[in-house]
């Protein structure tokens, strides 16, 4: 079962095509990372899913139901800019989230509050960007929502906090059965926590698959190696990323696949191996 399916999502802003026919799906209980360079359309995609930015066309299915605002009690969102309401204290946020999300986990929230030494009287806007990242992530995880959308969750975090947050994300999925869709351009850490990924560039999905399957479907070979029954995805310095299941070369790392597709001359073609089921 899919927690989220995005079908043919398109969006224009001020006459510019920001998203074009975006398709991907997040299976329940998994972590899908939407990866791509700055300005690729990651944040707009995430906001369109929540209808914070109205979509021009396309469909968003959440837990097998077409998206509507009543489903938002099962979806928590952490914004990229970590913007917060002015003059609101942490206690106001706590009360707000506790009221708005029926599955709120008070114990979870309070445990982390004391662990990080946060004070409920603290004004949210006066926290550092890193502190806001942590507190907004903890608020999202404490909602008990079945799907959490996080825009660049590890940005602005020191290594210890980053490690802690990645641990929390994995715990939320593995122990609480939740699903996470996150965006990131930090491709080197993705393998630590993501189970699948979608590469986005210029508002188009170039490739989407599980990490394991993507590695099995690609090989890295040297420039002078003999290539047969393979499609060249990209030439990267003295190596070539191939799409093949022939037993040649080496299995690529995730970051090599991502960089390969981003560099690909065929970036206009959409390659999707995670099927989005038709209703």
């Amino acid at each position: 079962m899919y927690a989220l399916q995005v079908k043919s999502l398109s969006k224009q802003i001020d006459g510019k095509q920001i998203l074009s026919d975006i398709n991907f799906a997040v299976p329940q209980g998994e972590i899908l990372a939407l990866v791509g360079p700055n300005g690729a359309g990651k944040t707009t995609t995430l906001k369109c899913i929540m209808n914070a930015v109205p979509r021009d066309s396309g469909e968003v299915i959440v837990f097998d139901r077409p998206f509507d605002a009543s489903l938002k009690i099962d979806i928590a969102f952490v914004t990229e800019d970590r913007r917060v309401f002015d003059n609101l204290r942490l206690e106001d946020y706590y009360n707000m989230y506790k009221t708005l999300y029926p599955s709120w986990n008070d114990q979870f929230f309070k445990n982390f509050l004391s662990k990080y030494g946060f004070n409920l009287e603290q004004e949210m806007q006066k926290l550092s960007r890193g502190q806001k990242t942590i507190i907004l992530s903890i608020l999202a995880l404490a909602t008990g929502a079945k799907l959490i959308i996080m825009d660049e969750p590890t940005q602005h975090l020191d290594p210890a906090s980053r490690y802690e947050l990645i641990h929390l994300i994995k715990q939320y999925v593995n122990e609480m059965g939740g699903t996470i869709l996150l965006s990131s351009h930090e491709i080197f850490e993705l393998e630590e926590y993501a189970t699948s990924f979608a590469i986005i560039k210029n508002g188009r999905i170039l490739y989407t698959d599980t990490i394991d399957d993507a590695k099995h479907k690609h090989r890295i070979v040297r420039l002078n190696e003999n290539i047969r029954n393979a499609r060249i995805v990209a030439v990267m310095e003295d190596e070539i990323l191939l799409r093949t299941q022939e037993d040649i070369g080496e299995y690529p790392r995730l970051n090599q696949i991502i960089v390969g597709y981003l560099k690909s001359a065929e970036e206009g073609s959409i390659v999707s191996d995670m099927q989005v089921p038709n209703e």
């Binding site: 906001k47 929540m50 914070a52 509507d68 605002a69 938002k72 914004t79 309401f85 708005l100 999300y101």
Partner: peptide, 15 residues
């Protein structure tokens, strides 16, 4: 552009 913060919470635009 602060309304987005409300739209990302469990509020509908009607509400």
């Amino acid at each position: 552009k602060n309304a987005e913060l409300l739209y990302l919470l469990p509020f509908s635009k009607k509400e």
